[in-house]
Nucleic acid binder design. Structure first.
Lengths: 197, 197
DNA sequence: GTCTATAAGATGATAGAC
DNA sequence: GTCTATCATCTTATAGAC
């Protein structure tokens, strides 16, 4: 009963968190339902009381994460900030996503291609296109308004930024070494002004 | 007979090239020996006439590639160029490796972690350490000699460069769009001088 | 919500014929 | 150098008891 909005409450989310961690660590296909069940302290068959399939699990992990993330991007796009500030905010929001939702980011980075081969995960390609539009829009606005160099190849610049930001999920460890804010600070500085003295 | 230096000549290399392409595309573990055999037009059992195991195949793919690549890095490190030029050369050599040995780069980027769990592939972790040393050495030399900004976080700078350069293997397509030289030109310019106007 | 038991298919690898 | 045939194992998923 309770609030009528959340039919299944806690165990389900617990299992999803365990699955997300394993998918991120070993990849979706290389993680077996037995791995997930073992980590949860139950047997593999018992997982199917909670979820239809392994695919359903990764589906439930990715969708809410992406809704949140692209909501943040939309807010930045719609803001009154100048293009340079918007770009900086987009970078910071992305590093923050790595801090707060590392497994989700890693799964999207590593397994989107493979998952995309199933019709069910067609939305992953859409999200990829959407992400490209966000970054390209910001870069083009920067060039147009004169805050970014006019000789930039927009497509290559987009790819460099996207790659550097998202692949950081491979090495960034929350609570160890740098904070995500420090990482974002250093990257923004290098991206905007370069490493030359 | 022939030159006595190459016992098995051509079919073996042909099969390795097919395997490399598939490993790069779908990942090592997600590529089955049947996939490789199908692509080669033979049956899976026949592969074992040429190779001990799937692991042997990826071994033979990675080792000669890494020998070549790190030979190039060593040459740059030992050269008389100033630090800025050395760094630029290292970036260019890396993009060139993506052009010429895309599958090998992709396998190393995507599967080194997984393969590294087998003792047999311990050399992959060594190569990773060696790669880090190359980049960090070049960046530190640049800061010391004053050609790079003194406020750089060397470790973060290394990670940003490494990530951007190597992950390009995910999107770079030889013969389509930009050449590897154009990609390197644009990246070197952004890395050294930034995107701000 | 978890267990027992098991089906149905895929996978890496082998032995021996051609 | 490739094929036939096959094994042992692992994998996702299901049915029904507790």
């Amino acid at each position: 009963m309770s609030a009528a909005s959340t039919p299944e409450p806690s165990r389900r989310d617990e299992l999803l968190a365990i699955a997300a961690r394993l998918f991120a660590e070993k990849g979706f296909k290389n993680t077996t339902v037995r791995d997930i069940a073992d980590a949860a302290g139950i047997l593999s068959g018992s997982l199917y009381h909670h979820f239809d399939s392994k695919e359903s699990m990764v589906d439930e992990i990715l969708i809410p994460f992406q809704d949140r993330l692209f909501g943040q991007y939309d807010e930045i796009l719609a803001s009154d900030d100048d293009a340079r500030t918007k770009l900086e905010r987009a970078v910071r929001v992305s590093f923050e996503a790595i801090e707060q939702h590392g497994p989700e980011v890693a799964i999207f980075q590593n397994d989107a291609d493979y998952l995309g081969t199933f019709e069910r995960f067609g939305y992953l390609a859409d999200r990829n296109t959407q992400s490209r539009q966000v970054w390209v829009t910001l870069i083009e606005e920067g060039v147009r308004t004169g805050v970014l160099r006019p000789d930039l190849d927009v497509t290559l610049t987009y790819r460099f930024i996207r790659d550097t930001v998202w692949v950081a999920v491979r090495w960034y460890q929350p609570g160890k070494g740098h904070t995500h804010t420090e990482v974002a600070d250093q990257y923004v500085r290098i991206l905007l002004d370069g490493i030359s003295s």
